[in-house]
Design a binder for these strands. Sequence first.
DNA 1: CCTAATCGTTAGGTATGCCTAAATTGTACT
DNA 2: AGTACAATTTAGGCATACCTAACGATTAGG
Lengths: 143, 143
Amino acid sequence: MKRLTREEYIEAIHVLQKPVGRAKTGQIAAHMGVRPPSVTQMLIKLKDEGLVDYEPFVGAKLTPKGNALARELMARHKVIADLLEILGIDRETAEKDACVIEHHMSRESAARLKQFVEFVQSAPRDPQWVERFRKYCEGGEAR
Amino acid sequence: MKRLTREEYIEAIHVLQKPVGRAKTGQIAAHMGVRPPSVTQMLIKLKDEGLVDYEPFVGAKLTPKGNALARELMARHKVIADLLEILGIDRETAEKDACVIEHHMSRESAARLKQFVEFVQSAPRDPQWVERFRKYCEGGEAR
DNA sequence: CCTAATCGTTAGGTATGCCTAAATTGTACT
DNA sequence: AGTACAATTTAGGCATACCTAACGATTAGG
């Protein structure tokens, strides 16, 4: 089975706390596909590390430090998802893969990937080679 | 600390068995940055799964099944490392990142990335946009 | 208010990969 | 062949993320 990381919990809380300012244990558990006790346990750890403000029976919300981390993670996440989408992966799979990949890459590679995505996105629009790449994927060769 | 996966052991054995046909416990341990007992333990598990042919005090080599898996993993690994290298990451970092990323991506995305790398590599050589991207990374904008 | 259902936490246990220390096997040199 | 050294395995623990079962708190309906 897949083991989730602290960072993935941070992201989940970031998403879930938006509506009401707090994420509840049950929500987090459902969102991440684990059981509530696992969440409680992790929240205690994250609290010890100063990343979340956790109050039993009430819920958790990110501290400033946690929010900063979340923003960084989300940015990295977006880059990877964008890259995969540029290459023709459907958004849903791209999102899913980004989730698991993002935590495992050096800052250096992440930064470079970000530049690449920006480079492509800043192009007039659909630069020729993206067009050609799409064709290359479907039909045979287009070059 | 980072926990290694079965697949990473398979790859290491694949690399190390080439010269002599077998990888020894100590070699694997050194190569992966773990202690010998951890390797022995893992070799026993991999043997139970039919992936390696392990004989105590002699060494380990991949079974046909293990070799097939290794080839698949190496191919995926190469794609990711190639992509990062195309984007300007030095080979060493690219290799390192590929190691940790490859196990966490869907087949779909892996396949698409492979197509992309092939697409770029099949170009006459250094297509214009790669050139421009490199400039974009160094100086300001080049478009 | 007070009980019932729901949600959360605590307690205790599993799986997995890693470690150190000690025992065992293999090897090389005299 | 015998002994000293090196490599490997065994034995016993630690850490981490997960689980189920049982207990405690919260909330909603009467």
